[in-house]
């Protein structure tokens, strides 16, 4: 887990801080170096089919992917926690009705809903993360609901009521601190999920639009050009996979630590 944390931190720091120090911006076109090889004409990783610096583009794409993923995961956290907490705390029929809705949504082909939304409302970055967040909250809602439901009937909550604690104090003092770690662990597991979804959409041309770029777009462009410049596929692909593996490790590590 330490290695994973270090990797994610390194990728994030590089994506955020490094670009100003590079000789080329991510949209700058170097007409003299189309499909340049690595370490030629000042392009460390070479250039793509129109002469844009691959390193600069990969860092810019990573930044967009991470930003979209964090925002969408936060949307999922907010909706999921609120939905799950209300269902779990009130229980009974409220719970049953709310969870039926979640079950129903689970049965939908997620990605297609997002794609349909993109097609219908046009392609905007706001819609990308709203759309993703709105479908990724389901698992969060289930997890939080399960946790709240289990806590709700724990004797220490009852003992707190017997100790005269008002409902607000029980929620703040007992419920929230016990739900938060689990929600955060699942937030960490949601982020890589969202990274994949965003890249998937961008790959299909339905996500982030030019001149912005993201890892999915880069993989797509690289795939078109892989016979001549394989690095344009391999570099963004490797960054994406490394990011998702490391984020998954962190999330799983957190969850296991909680289970103990």
């Amino acid at each position: 887990m330490k290695g994973a944390l270090f990797l994610v931190a390194a990728i994030a720091v590089a994506a955020l801080l490094l670009p100003p120090f590079l000789p080329w911006g991510y949209a700058d076109i170097d007409w003299n170096a189309v499909r340049a090889a690595p370490f030629s004409s000042g392009h460390w990783l070479g250039t793509d089919s129109v002469g844009r610096d691959l390193l600069a583009r990969t860092l810019a794409g990573t930044r967009v992917t991470l930003a979209v993923a964090s925002a969408a995961a936060l949307v999922a956290l907010l909706i999921g926690t609120a939905w799950g907490a209300i269902a779990g705390w009130f229980g009974g029929r409220v719970d049953e009705a709310m969870m039926r809705v979640v079950d129903g949504l689970y049965a939908l082909p997620f990605m297609f809903v997002v794609i349909v939304l993109m097609v219908v409302f046009g392609r905007s970055i706001l819609l990308v993360f709203l759309g993703i967040g709105a479908v990724e909250w389901l698992t969060m809602a289930r997890v939080v609901r399960g946790q709240v439901l289990a806590l709700r009937h724990r004797p220490f909550i009852l003992a707190s009521e017997a100790a005269g604690a008002p409902t607000g104090a029980i929620l703040r003092g007992h419920l929230l601190p016990n739900v938060a770690p689990v929600a955060i662990a699942y937030l960490m597991l949601t982020i890589p999920q969202v990274v994949m979804v965003e890249s998937f959409l961008s790959f299909l041309g339905l996500g982030v639009q030019e001149p912005l770029t993201s890892l999915g777009i880069l993989v797509h462009d690289g795939a078109d050009d892989m016979d001549i410049a394989p690095l344009t596929l391999l570099v963004p692909g490797a960054v994406l996979v490394a990011l998702v593996v490391a984020l998954n490790r962190i999330g799983e590590g957190l969850r296991q630590r909680l289970a103990r």
Binding site: R154, P155, F156, L158, A159, S160, G173, H174, N178
Partner: peptide, 11 residues
């Protein structure tokens, strides 16, 4: 009250 499961009785 004092409950059955002592561990679950304490936050």
């Amino acid at each position: 009250p004092v409950f059955q499961d002592p561990v679950a009785s304490l936050d």
